[in-house]
Amino acid sequence: MNSPQDSSVVGSAPKVSWREALSQNAGAYVGLILPLIIIALLTIWPTVTGKDITRESIFTIMLSIALASSLNILLGYTGYVSFGHVVFFGLGGYVGFYLMAVQGWSLWPAMAMGGLAAGLLAFLLGKAILRLRGGYFALATIGVNEAMRAFINNFEPFGGPVGMTLNFQVYRDYGGAAQALRMTFYILAAITFIVILVSYFVRMSKFGLGLLAIREDEDAAEVMGVVAPSAKTWAYVLSAIFPGILGVLFFFKNGSIEPVPAFRLNFSIEMIVMVMLGGQGTVLGPILGGIGYQSLRGYLLTSPLFKNIQLAVAGVLLLVIVLFVPAGVVGWLRNRFPVLRRILQ
């Protein structure tokens, strides 16, 4: 018989001319423009205004963006709802903090180890709980986070229920507390930048296409040859590493760590809300979501009218989004203005 390869219909892939390849590739980067501009603006904004307070609020926004974008790799691309994603932030933070506070490590290797610990946990967990679908997976991630918090609460090397604090002297190695504070901001900016690049290249890659296929219909994806178990696990690991690193940075800046703030379930849910608000499954979505959510929260918390009921107001807004704009801002724009699709990735 003649082998299927040399048939005309399903014939071998024609060569791609270099010109076409170039234009295609150039087109492929269009979607990066907006995300990178936004991150760049956020990074230089505190220098422009010259106020420390601006830097602090942008630190919160940027942290949100980085966390939401990481989560989006699992939630938005792969379609698995990790309700307890904060476990990676908390565990990474704890491991890194322990290394700095007790073992005297410096920030960089501690961050690396925090990321590693989170990634490892995701890898091990992924093998087990990613078998669960839909609501069962979401529940399991809640269980994992609660179990971890309860465990750390009992784990004496990490300080048990009181947690750990950094000796103030530590900041001296970084040129004093003020200098260290400024430094954490720029480190955060760099990490956010990397997260966005990773998110983008995953989205545009074959691996990412496999994830999207899993999101749409996991069984059909497997029939088409997507090796779902390993693809999901790697997506989970990727989405866990950055929260792990960021946890170390955050608690370093914070100066202390305790079980309750490190594993706060609501923090996970906030990440999800940001992803939803901006548009799940897009690169730009979590960025806009992070900015939008934190600005709104800041406004509600300080507004005399809403201050007392800010949680309820946020709830109403969330409900409106879920019910009426489930695709988020970016998704809505993409559907509304198909011309903009290339830019709004």
């Binding site: 999800i272 809300v273 709830g315």
Partner: peptide
């Protein structure tokens, strides 16, 4: 999940 969570927030 999010709709019922929103109700919880409210």
């Amino acid at each position: 999940l999010l709709a019922t969570f929103a109700v919880a927030m409210i």
